[in-house]
């Protein structure tokens, strides 16, 4: 009786000590890990992959490429607004979309407005200081045909320690010359989050 009680006590102490030690495990970057239930890399990746997949399977793509024979449509990724209730780094999300689109090989993607400003500054510098042989020509940029704009919206239904988090990502592809909306895509994520009532 006494020995089993002591073993029990020892087990409790071991458990408590284990809880105090920081543990680190390498995990696959593509693995789905959710800790707090907030927007994370998994959501960003899944949405961007879904968007890239949907973007080229819709009728606009065939029609548009037929109109500009011999080349791929040129895309610029514009502003994706975060209207959700979380601090979402839209830049990482935008980058995920960019990667998915470039890797598909169906569109040419040009530098974003921020990058363009830097590149233009660099070309102006080259125009003044670089040798003629290596100098890059001004006014020779690839003009974008279409722009991708969007927003991340969220609705959170909370009741006590339980909540349902719903994210709606809306993206619109707009023809820059005509302002015509070519495609509107929507991705949704719904999560049920239950916070613990008790901790050790």
């Amino acid at each position: 009786m006494n020995i089993s009680l002591r073993y029990g006590q020892l087990a409790v102490i071991c458990l408590m000590l284990t809880a105090c030690v920081t543990s680190v495990n390498r995990v696959d970057p593509d693995s789905d890990i959710d800790i707090s239930g907030k927007w994370n890399d998994v959501d960003s990746r899944k949405v961007s992959e879904g968007i890239a997949q949907e973007l080229f399977t819709q009728p606009w793509y065939a029609r548009y490429t037929a109109g500009i024979k011999g080349r791929l449509p040129v895309l610029i990724i514009g502003l994706i607004r975060n209207n959700s209730n979380e601090h979402i780094n839209t830049e990482t999300f935008t980058k995920d979309i960019e990667i998915a689109i470039i890797n598909s090989g169906n569109l040419d993607v040009v530098a974003s407005s921020n990058q363009q400003a830097l590149l233009r500054q660099e070309r102006s510098g080259q125009d003044q200081y670089a040798s003629e042989a290596t100098r890059k020509i001004l006014r020779n940029e690839l003009g974008a045909d279409v722009i991708l704009l969007g927003s991340i919206n969220s609705v959170e239904d909370v009741e006590g320690r339980r909540s349902v988090r719903y994210y709606q990502i809306d993206l619109e592809l707009i023809d820059i010359e005509s302002n015509r909306k070519l495609w509107i895509g929507q991705q949704e994520i719904k999560k049920f989050v239950q916070k613990p009532r008790v901790r050790l």
């Binding site: 975060n82 209730n85 979380e86 601090h87 959170e156 909370v158 009741e159 006590g160 320690r161 909540s163």
Partner: peptide, 19 residues
């Protein structure tokens, strides 16, 4: 202001959590 909006929205969610 956009980030400030998120903080106050989160405070409102917390109030819902507290019922």
């Amino acid at each position: 202001a956009a980030a400030a909006r998120i903080e106050i929205s989160q405070a409102e969610i917390l109030m819902q959590e507290w019922r």
